[in-house]
Design a protein around this nucleic acid. Structure first.
Length: 260
DNA sequence: ATGCCTTGTCGCACAAGA
């Protein structure tokens, strides 16, 4: 089965691209981020027509995450635990039954954190601490579990075409990278890196300054696999050609194939 | 470069993104 994550930068503006990609790639489970829509205004029909169930946690204008699945979506939970005052729609988790048993999957949109010096950077770091605490609890269940989404973290210099351009950016701060490392080191496998894919393939290219044409990208969309999910890992890949489509998102789908 | 695009908003300029 194929499990993917894709920050679509507005589901209403991207619905034709999303439907075309679903139809051609036929993924089993897809985590979406940046819906920029409420639950009521997400265009479900073009997705459901292709055979997908849809679970959304939307928000007007900003954020918003979803899980699409050909199989039934069960036990849906919204919001990351740890801060009841946090109103931003950045996390949804559910359980999906497969031929190999139950798979727990989360779609997350980690805060950007820019600009440094604003309240946004400590919010990002606090959100990462909440994610680490929740992930620790989930790993204790010892089940196949995938944390997929837009992490807004460049893990290593080789995950950027020009790492020096990002030295002053929240996505490449030592604190951001350290928290990401701490998360992975709880026992997750960062699937794309683990599959030893070649450097130079990214998951985001800015709309500005011809970043796509120059391949001036960064790899910030990741699928983290629990040990039980890692046992099923066959391959990892990035559908970078989607960035060259008409009216593209600035992110492209990242995916794993699992033996299930 | 506070720049360069793109999306969404109780639009007619601005916030937010990364």
């Amino acid at each position: 089965m194929i499990v993917a994550t894709w920050n679509v930068n507005g589901i209403k503006s991207r619905i034709d691209n999303v439907a075309a990609w679903l139809e051609s790639r036929q993924p089993d489970v897809v985590c979406l981020q940046e819906l920029k829509s409420t639950d009521e205004t997400v265009p479900r029909e073009p997705i459901e027509r292709l055979g997908y169930n849809v679970a959304t946690h939307g928000q007007k204008g900003f954020n918003g995450v979803a899980i699409l699945s050909k199989r039934p979506i069960e036990d849906v939970r919204e919001r990351l635990p740890g801060d009841d005052a946090d109103e931003q729609a950045r996390y949804i988790e559910a359980v999906i039954s497969t031929d190999a048993g139950a798979l727990r999957i989360a779609s997350l949109y980690l805060p950007n954190g820019n600009p440094l010096g604003s309240e946004k950077f400590p919010y990002k770091l606090a959100w990462m601490e909440r994610l680490i605490a929740h992930a620790r609890n989930r790993l204790a269940l010892e089940e196949p579990f995938i944390l997929a989404g837009d992490y807004n973290v460049i893990p290593m210099p080789e995950d950027a075409r020009n790492a020096d351009d990002w030295r002053g950016d929240a996505l490449f701060q030592p604190e951001s990278r350290g928290a990401f490392r701490e998360l992975v080191n709880l026992g997750f496998t960062e699937s794309y890196r683990a599959c030893d894919e070649a450097d130079g393939t990214y998951s985001f290219w800015d709309y500005q300054a011809g970043a796509w044409q120059k391949n001036n990208g960064i790899r910030i969309d990741h699928l983290l696999l629990s040990p039980q999910a890692t046992d099923m890992l066959v391959s990892a890949s990035i559908d970078k050609e989607v960035r060259g489509w008409e009216k593209p998102s600035d992110h492209v789908p990242v995916m794993v194939q699992l033996a299930a």
